[in-house]
Design a protein around this nucleic acid. Structure first.
Lengths: 167, 167
DNA sequence: TTAAACTTTCAAAAATAAATGAAACTTTAG
DNA sequence: CTAAAGTTTCATTTATTTTTGAAAGTTTAA
């Protein structure tokens, strides 16, 4: 396999993986492209490589910057903007985890707390509902807090975590 | 908030969370419904509660059973089939993790290994590609193995994991 | 058997999500 | 200033995913 083919395969795979996890394909592809580029890339180049429109490129770059995993860069004497990806994988994972927690887990937790707090516990059915949703709340909260711990762990948290688990 | 409202809110929220994570809404909703039901539910009842077609119910129940998080049940003297969800959350998380690993992570790892093994490392660009994809391979492999460890941990792995991380 | 009760399948329709591209907007060099 | 270079926005179009529903398939009681 030659470089160009490998590069394409990687970008496509990353894109597919993204959509399976609820991240749009182009966003994941742009990120993939930036991850493996050794220098900042212009929007023009991204459009060209991925064969996408200017609007699409612009919106997804914006989204990636909102997630904090892609940065804008300015080159001296250049009018255009260039983009680079967060390349440190520990940092990348932490940022993605943080963002998904904020956008999806936290709001879900709020709802879980609400619905598990209903008053009436007359029937067995209602008791079971309260019991199950309470357990779910505890579980999700614990899992979410674990993600926060990852951040505190800092540098190479994954490696350290695996070590802890092993022993 | 009364029971019926809370129940509905929970099912809707679980459905929305599902689609954000690449699991189709109905599948997540059926699962939610079964999670909070204290007894096995017939397909007819699921269709009625969620206002969905027979085909939709059938296909998504099948998918949930393929994931190993919903079971068929037969009641004595009843022709119809009934369904129940895996209600143990540790078990649920492990099964979901296992399934996603098998379906998505493992195939992605295979590709990562492939593309990080290209021969030519002439240019700095190619060197960076090989370096970055290799690192990604290692990272994803480590994360995936961690999921396997969860299984070995068995009962209440999440609680124990949090304890380990804390200290 | 067979017919009623129930389930599955899958082509077509509907709903949803993503992409396009042209117009509006912003920035900067001259 | 202002015009050229570049970027963003968003209504419309396109692509993808999900849902429907009717036909085919299966099971079982009589």
């Amino acid at each position: 396999m030659e470089f160009k083919e490998a590069k394409n395969k990687f970008v496509q795979t990353w894109g597919a993986l993204g959509s399976q996890w609820g991240i749009n394909k182009t966003m994941a592809q742009i990120h993939a492209l930036l991850m493996i580029s050794n220098q900042a890339v212009s929007m023009e180049d991204i459009m060209e490589e991925l064969q996408i429109s200017r609007g699409n490129a612009s919106m997804n770059l914006r989204a990636l910057m909102d997630w904090g995993i892609v940065y804008k860069e300015y080159k001296a004497g250049e009018r255009r903007e260039f983009f680079t990806a967060e390349k440190d994988l520990d940092e990348l994972a932490v940022k993605i985890a943080r963002e998904r927690s904020k956008r999806e887990i936290k709001p879900a937790l709020k709802i879980l707390k609400e619905v598990s707090s209903i008053e009436s516990k007359d029937s067995a059915e209602e008791k079971h509902f309260v019991d199950q949703t309470s357990k779910l709340y505890d579980f999700v909260l614990k899992a979410d807090n674990m993600l926060d711990k990852m951040t505190e762990f800092n540098e190479n948290w994954l490696g350290r975590l695996v070590l802890k688990i092993m022993k």
